[in-house]
Design a protein around this nucleic acid. Sequence first.
DNA 1: CATGAATGAGTGTTCATTCAT
DNA 2: AATGAATGAACACTCATTCAT
Lengths: 214, 214, 214, 214
Amino acid sequence: MPPSDSTDQPRWRRRKDDRPQEIVAAAMDVFAERGYAAARLDDVAHRAGVSKGTLYLYFASKEELFKAVVRAAILPNLERAERLAEGAPGPTMALLDRILAMAGEMIATSQVAIIPKLVIAEAGNFPELAAFYHREVIQRVFGLLGGLLERGMARGEFRPLPIDHTVRLIAAPLLMSAMWRNSFDAVAPLDVAALIATHRDHLRRVLLVTEDAP
Amino acid sequence: MPPSDSTDQPRWRRRKDDRPQEIVAAAMDVFAERGYAAARLDDVAHRAGVSKGTLYLYFASKEELFKAVVRAAILPNLERAERLAEGAPGPTMALLDRILAMAGEMIATSQVAIIPKLVIAEAGNFPELAAFYHREVIQRVFGLLGGLLERGMARGEFRPLPIDHTVRLIAAPLLMSAMWRNSFDAVAPLDVAALIATHRDHLRRVLLVTEDAP
Amino acid sequence: MPPSDSTDQPRWRRRKDDRPQEIVAAAMDVFAERGYAAARLDDVAHRAGVSKGTLYLYFASKEELFKAVVRAAILPNLERAERLAEGAPGPTMALLDRILAMAGEMIATSQVAIIPKLVIAEAGNFPELAAFYHREVIQRVFGLLGGLLERGMARGEFRPLPIDHTVRLIAAPLLMSAMWRNSFDAVAPLDVAALIATHRDHLRRVLLVTEDAP
Amino acid sequence: MPPSDSTDQPRWRRRKDDRPQEIVAAAMDVFAERGYAAARLDDVAHRAGVSKGTLYLYFASKEELFKAVVRAAILPNLERAERLAEGAPGPTMALLDRILAMAGEMIATSQVAIIPKLVIAEAGNFPELAAFYHREVIQRVFGLLGGLLERGMARGEFRPLPIDHTVRLIAAPLLMSAMWRNSFDAVAPLDVAALIATHRDHLRRVLLVTEDAP
DNA sequence: CATGAATGAGTGTTCATTCAT
DNA sequence: AATGAATGAACACTCATTCAT
C-alpha cells in the first residue's frame, strides 16, 4: 500500500459547501450525455461520489437539479461576456470580434455548449424552464449584441440594419456550432473557430459602412 | 350466414396500406410535443386510432418508429428542394432566394421543423440515427447549397468564398428558426419569414460580386 | 408430475372480468395484515397472482385500490342488513336481535371487520375517504338502527330515548368487537357472539317498556 | 476569557432531563396527525426543537419512541383513575359516574385519546406492543371496572351480571368516542359528554337493582 | 391483421438510521 | 450531549414490449 500524501483525505470527509457544485457538475455531464429524460439520478449520484439520497439534500427534484445546471453553466459566462462588452473603447467591430471569439472558444472547448440543446429539447415539457431561459439567457444575449449594433450605428461604423433580426443572424451560427458539437461531432467534427472566423468575415461585409466602397 | 366470396369487402374496410403512414403521422405529433424519451407509445397508438400492439406490426421498436418519422418527414421535402435547385436557369441568387423562402415557409407552417430538434436531442443516445441523419439529410442539404454556391461562383455571380463554411452560415438561421419555433414560440413568437428575408438581404451583400461596387 | 384435472387452466388464462375482484380480495388481505401505509403493492400483486403493472390497469393508485377495498367489503353487507330490516314484521326487538347477530357473526368470521380499523387509522391522511365512509357506511348504519328505534317507539315497544345517542351506544360494542378481533385477538381471543348476546340482554332492559315492570 | 468554575451554568442551559419528555410530546402530536407509518422523525425532531440525531440518543428506534409515547400518555391517566376508584366511599354508581365523566372529558379534550387508535392500527405490525398494551392498559382498565362491578354487586346495588362482558360493554362507548374524535370529528363532530351521559343513563337501568321496580 | 391485457425492469423519491464532528 | 450530512434500502408508479386470442 503506497503511503498517502499529505493531501489525502478520509473518504468521508465532509465538504459540505462544495457538494452542490460537485453535484451540479456531475449532473451536467450526465444530462449532456443522455439528455434530461434519459439521465438517471443514480448516475449523477455515482459520478458525484455521493449517494442518491444526498442529491435530495440539495435539490428538491430532478427538474430543480436541471435548472441548477442551466443556471450554473450559463450565468457566469454571460456575465463575463457582458463585462467584456460594456466599458470597452475602440471600434465596435473589434468588440464584436472578441465576443464571437470568446463564444467560439467556449463552444469548442467547454461543456456549457450543451445547455441550449438541453433546454430546447425539454422546452415543451418544462415551459417554465423555457421562459426562464428566454428571459435570463436569450434576452440578455440579444440585448448584449443589440447594444453593440446600436453603438456601431451611432458611431457611424455600422450600416443601418434591423437590430432584432441582425442580432439573431449573428447568433445563429453560434447556436448551430453548439448544437453540432454535441450531436454530430462524433460523425463529422466541426472546426468551430474557423467557422466563426468566416462568420466574422461575412459580418464585416454586412455590417461595416467602410466595406461598402473600398 | 352465407360465405362471402373472395372479392367481398367489408364496409369498414381498413386502408391497410395507409396504416404505417397514419402511425408515423401520429408519432410525429407526439414526438414533437414531448420529445423522444417522454413520448408514450400509448399516445401514439391512441392518436393513430389503433391499438398499441398494432404499432409493433409495422415498427419493431420505439427507436425504429422514430427513425421512420425522421425519414418520412425529411426526405420528401429534401427531394423537392433538390428538384427546385437542379435544372433551374437564371441567376443563382434567385434560386437561393426560392430555396430559402421554401425552407422558411416549411419552418413556419409545417410539423417537420421539429425533426432537427428531435434528432439533435437524441443524437447522443442513438449515434446510428445521428449518422443516418448526417448522411441522408445534412450532407444532402449542404451539397445542395454548396452546388448553388459553386454555380454562382462559376458564373461570376458570387464572390469566391469558402464553400463549406458559407454553406453552414446560410443554413444556420434556418436551423435557429426551426429550433425557436419548437421551443420558445410560446414565450416569444418568431416571424420566420421576416427573419429569412433579412437573412437574404445580408447574404446578398456577402455573396454577390455586384453588391461590392454599386 | 400428477395429471391435472379437468379444471386445470393454463397459467396465462385471461380472466379479465374477475381480475379487479381478485385484486381487491388480495389487497384486503394485505391491508388487513399490514395497514395501509405498510402494505406493499408488490405483495398485493403477488397474492393476486398478477404483476405489479396489472394493478395499475384497474386501479389508478394505491389510494384508489384502498377505496375499492372499502367499498367492496362494506356495501354488500350493508345492503344485506338493510334488506333484513326493511320489510320485516313482528316485534322490533326481534329484528334488532337478528341485526346484531348478523353483525356479530360477520365480525367473528369474516375479513370485513378489518375495514373500520383501516379507515379509522387512515382517516387523517385521507379525509376524503373518511367523508366517504361516514356518508356511505356510518350514516347508513346509524339510519338503519335509528329506523328500528323509531319503529319500536312508534309501536310502543321501546321507551322514548334519544335516537342519536342510543344508536351509537348500540353500535359501539360492535365496533369494539371488530377492533379487538383485528388487534388483540392473538393476545386474548374474544368470544364475539357471547359478548353480543350480553349486549342484547342489556339492550332489552334499556329499550323495552315491558321490562320495566315485570 | 476567564475560565468558568464548576458551578457555572451557561445561560442556554438545556433542561437535559426534560428532553425525552419533550420528544415524546412532539412524537405524540405527529403520530396523532399522521399515524405511525406516515409519521416522519424529521417532523418529530423539528417539533421538539432538536436534531434528528438527538432522537436516537434517547430512543433506539421509531418503534421504541412509539412505545414511549404510548406509555407516557396512558399510564398517568390510568393511575389517576385507579386512585379515584380505590379508596372511595359511597354508592358504586356514583363512583362509576365519576370514572365515566373523567374518561369522557379526557377523550373530549386531550391528545391521549389518540393512543388506542394508534395501537390498534399497528397491532398487526407490532405484536409485542399489542401485548404490552393489552397487559398494561386494557387489563388494568378492565380490572378497574370489574372491581367496581364486583363492589356494586357485593353491596347489593348492582344486579348480578357477567363481569367480563359487562366491563367491555361499559368501555365500548368510550373507545368509540375516542376513535370518532380522531377520525370523523372533522366530518361530523361528536358531543362526547352528552353521549357519555346517555350511556350513564342506560347503565343505570342495566346495572342498578333499584331501577327495576320503582 | 389486429387487439389489449399482461408483464417486469427501471426510476424518481422518501425516510429511518448512522456517524464523524 | 448534540448535530445534521450522508446513506441506501424500499417503494409507488411508468411504459416499452409481448403474446394469446
